[in-house]
Amino acid sequence: MIQVEHLGKSFHDYQRGWVEAVRDVSFECRPGEIFGLLGPNGAGKTTTLRILSTILRPTAGRAVVAGYDVVEHPEEVRRRIGFMSAGTGIYDRMTAWELVEYFGRLYGLPKARLRERMETVFGWLKMDDFRDVLGSKMSTGMKQKVSIARTIVHDPPVLIFDEPTSGLDILVQRVVLDKILELRDLGKTIVFSTHSMSEVQRLCSRVAIIYRGALQAQGPIDELLASHGQPDVEELFFALVERADALARADSDADVDASPARAGGPTP
């Protein structure tokens, strides 16, 4: 359902020149599976997921989501995914009901079907008591529920969650994670990024560890632990990070002339 092949993205910045935020990332995610993208802040998780949601264009490689290429058919991709991240807030001056209805209509749901979906989703997320509360008056937990409702109102086959639990208290965190597990059981294809090891262990069947813009390892958690000889995800993570840092240092020592920051601009 999601196929990512050799994906790359370079940005330009005055201080460092061309920076490769994502480099040669490949993975696959199938229906009924939660694929975890584990990495620290700035590792390239958000950039990768933004490319999958079509709001950024890749500078290398390709990605196919729900059967459509993200560069060639971005509208078709957006129609079939639900995307939630720290950057997708909710409107202050709209009530929960209005907001979910608005996005449902943008997804082109017919009125009767939208109404039915909304009743289902509001019931499922237990949002009925704040249907008519404005975004500005909601608690963080309420906002997060509205965001989830917005993400799934059109019943998309693919769901992308970019650190959906960051900044939440443990109660809300638990609700969010439970709901994502329920969505998996409904057969959705789910990509989930986080920097929390425990979340990965709880949710994901397969995981990729991303650091310095590149995937350091990927596979089912048990296999990864076994093949790297590490007792748990945390140890595995730090082992991979140290290895990547050592490699980068060796690289920059090897050729001092070739500035490591200048990874090469996008092909014209």
Partner: peptide, 14 residues
């Protein structure tokens, strides 16, 4: 600033 631009950009609207 309010973090709602991306919400709109990921909708099917071009």
């Amino acid at each position: 600033e309010r973090g709602t631009m991306e919400t709109l950009l990921i909708s099917p609207a071009g």
